[in-house]
Simulated assay, not measured.
Amino acid sequence: MPLFEVETNSHIVITWAEDADAATAVVTENFPSDAVLRLTKRPRDTWVISKAALGIPSKTDPCQTARECLSRAEGDKVHAIRLYMKEKGVDLEQARKVIESNMVIGW
């Protein structure tokens, strides 16, 4: 099944679909208020995001505690921040920065 990249006014959606119409339907179903701006059939069945394009340095230093908090919170950022604050005894702003930066580098 082909992989499609669908850009809307608010999102970039990567989805497998039988054809372009089916890919558009996936986006319309999940983001009904978004307008499809661009739809591209990817040449392979893998999609890669460049860290440099996202502004992430090539050498990353993930925080194991933050990753454990994200895992326990099942990806819920607010809950992970609370867990991190409790675990490390830091304030809200410090916990937010650590959790969000670890979310960006992929947990």
Rank of each mutant, 00 (worst) to 15 (best):
G89L: 02
R96D: 03
P43A: 09
F4S: 09
G55V: 06
E87D: 11
I81S: 01
L37I: 09
S33V: 11
K77M: 03
H79F: 10
S71Y: 14
Q64S: 14
R67G: 15
I49E: 11
S10T: 15
L92P: 01
D19F: 08
R82A: 04
H11V: 05
V104L: 13
S101C: 08
V98N: 00
A95T: 09
R82H: 11
L92N: 06
V48D: 05
V6M: 09
T40D: 13
T15C: 15
I56T: 09
V27C: 08
Q94Y: 01
M103G: 02
D34N: 10
C69R: 01
P62F: 13
V48F: 10
T40Q: 10
E18F: 13
C69Q: 03
I56S: 09
L3H: 07
V36Q: 03
V98W: 02
V36E: 04
H11Y: 14
M85G: 01
K59P: 03
E68L: 12
K97F: 04
W107N: 06
G89P: 02
P57G: 12
E74S: 13
T28W: 04
T28N: 10
F31E: 10
K77D: 01
W47K: 13
V104R: 14
I49D: 05
A22I: 11
Q94A: 13
V48Q: 07
D45S: 10
N102S: 05
V98L: 01
T15S: 14
R96E: 09
A25E: 15
D19M: 03
T65D: 12
H11T: 09
E87F: 02
W47E: 06
P62Y: 14
S58F: 13
V36H: 01
N102H: 02
V90Q: 05
A23V: 04
A17P: 07
A66P: 06
V104E: 11
W47H: 12
R38F: 08
R72N: 08
A95Q: 08
I56P: 03
N102D: 13
W16G: 14
P57R: 14
A52K: 12
S33Y: 07
L37H: 11
S58R: 15
A35W: 08
A25M: 06
Y84Q: 05
D76N: 10
V104M: 12
S33E: 13
H79W: 07
P32W: 07
T40A: 13
K88A: 08
M1V: 15
C63L: 07
K97V: 02
L54Y: 00
D34A: 04
D61T: 10
C69A: 11
K77H: 03
I12R: 15
